[in-house]
Design a protein around this nucleic acid. Sequence first.
DNA 1: CAAAATTCCTGACTGC
DNA 2: TGCAGTCAGGAATTTT
Length: 300
Amino acid sequence: MPELPEVETVRNVLAREAIGKRVKIVHVTDGRAVRRHKTAKDFRALLEGRSFKSVERLGKNIVVGLDNAHHLVIHLGMTGQVLRAKNAKEPKPKHTHVVISFTTGDELRYVDQRTFGELYVSTPPVEGAEVEISKFARLSIGGDGLSVRRQVPELAHLGIDPFEDQVGWDRFAAVLRSRTFGLKPLLTDQDIMAGIGNIYSDEILFTAGLMYDRVSESLSTIEIRRLHRTIPEVLTEAIKHGGTTLADEMFVNPDGETGSYQDLLQVHAREGLPCYQCRTPISKVVFHQRATYFCAKCQG
DNA sequence: CAAAATTCCTGACTGC
DNA sequence: TGCAGTCAGGAATTTT
């Protein structure tokens, strides 16, 4: 469930609290959380002794720059949490899979009920090696996204990041007209757009006044520009409110704080409740195996 | 080539 | 009260 705004909220805290710290010891208590590595020991060896130099985000990935040009990548999956602890004595929550202890005595714990998320240390490509970057991200005319992809090959396949990549509406229009996409599958496909999941695709499409099953190539220029503008608008507002914490309370930032954007959701998880714009009850359908909320009157 | 189905996982919830 | 079944869904993998 963590999507771009939640991941950005975590990134903000880590950038403030973890940059400059050196990793002393890594404990892996569930190897599934580091499954990209052959063994948990490999993961530990790549991380122990390294300092955190930067904390970036690409799509739903947190990318920690290490002092040896490697990167620690964290993906929260559905139920992953990164939690700070002042020291090792603080009780560890259930489903704590990885503990990163700093030389300063404090810790980061990776907690993940369903273990869909993962951590791994990415090795930079050898000098001069070509990293194939996704064709949608290549539409970017600048920003940090392209350099992150070149340094972290595992993320090179990601599509357009709404903040890290700079893609104007005209290039966005070219994406929409390049093939037949349903709008919701387009927004949630990480290889086309990076960072948007089930909650924010519903919110973006409502705010843009577009139906989830509209076909991309049927959009007018005005509709394309509206969608292009709405994506960062909705996500920016959600980041301001610290992300969305739904009833399951699965999302909290590293300080254990919930977000508040759930109070501002227009359609997601509001089945049967009146639309804030027109009072029509919000509808829910299953579309492409995903719960989809919309206002039948406001979206066309 | 792409799109659809399958898999991973735990906890909450439903029906009997 | 207990127990089997269902659902939630991001993304890699497998199948169609």
